[in-house]
């Protein structure tokens, strides 16, 4: 019931339609900075749209706030902080890299490394019979040629070349 009411309350907030021309700053460089900030701020009312994209009234207010701060000479970080001061870290679509988010930010890389390591360990731990059939050295090659010459009935099959490899694939069939 509470959730429903909340939804009701949010829907009834007057709606506009994302960045409005009237909000824009005259200075294109400043405006571009404002856009880059608000694109990474979360609109709290619509939950998963950015402030830049959202049509909600609150998003409009935050867009204006950020622009006012930039006009007043704030750096990007300061303008962002002004919004965080009011609404908390929840507004940041890009979570800060800090102890609470180390797991979040570094786990993907760690997983890849661990996964890669585990795969290598697994491959190494298997019997190596096929893993490395070393190519024929010169002595072997001479012996093979000699054997082939001895048995003239055999066609002169050359040492496997790259081109013959697709034939290997058939071994895997069925």
């Amino acid at each position: 019931m509470r959730a429903l009411l909340l939804v009701l309350l949010l829907l009834l907030a007057p709606r506009a339609f994302a960045v409005e021309p009237s909000e824009r700053l005259a200075d294109p460089a400043l405006e571009a900075r404002a856009r880059s900030i608000t694109a990474e701020l979360r609109c709290l009312v619509c939950q998963n749209e950015s402030v830049d994209e959202s049509g909600a009234d609150l998003a409009h207010d935050i867009r204006v706030l950020v622009r006012d701060r930039l006009k007043a000479g704030d750096t990007n970080a300061q303008a962002r902080q002004a919004v965080v001061d009011r609404y908390g870290q929840f507004v940041l679509l890009r979570p800060r890299v800090e102890p609470a988010t180390y797991v979040l930010w570094f786990a993907p890389v760690a997983l890849l490394v661990v996964g890669f390591g585990a795969t290598v360990v697994w491959l190494r731990g298997r019997p190596a019979s096929i893993a490395a059939p070393s190519p024929l050295d010169d002595a072997e090659r001479t012996r093979l040629d000699a054997m082939l010459r001895e048995d003239a009935s055999l066609p002169a099959v050359p040492v496997p070349t790259r081109d013959s490899q697709p034939a290997l694939a058939q071994d895997g069939e069925a």
Binding site: S50, G88, Q89, F90, L93, R94, P95, A100, W105, P108
Partner: peptide
């Protein structure tokens, strides 16, 4: 009991895309 935070597209663009 940690802070409430959001994980949005900038995170995924920086982590998923490189993978």
């Amino acid at each position: 009991g940690g802070p409430k935070l959001s994980v949005g597209f900038p995170f995924f663009n920086r982590t998923f895309a490189p993978l």
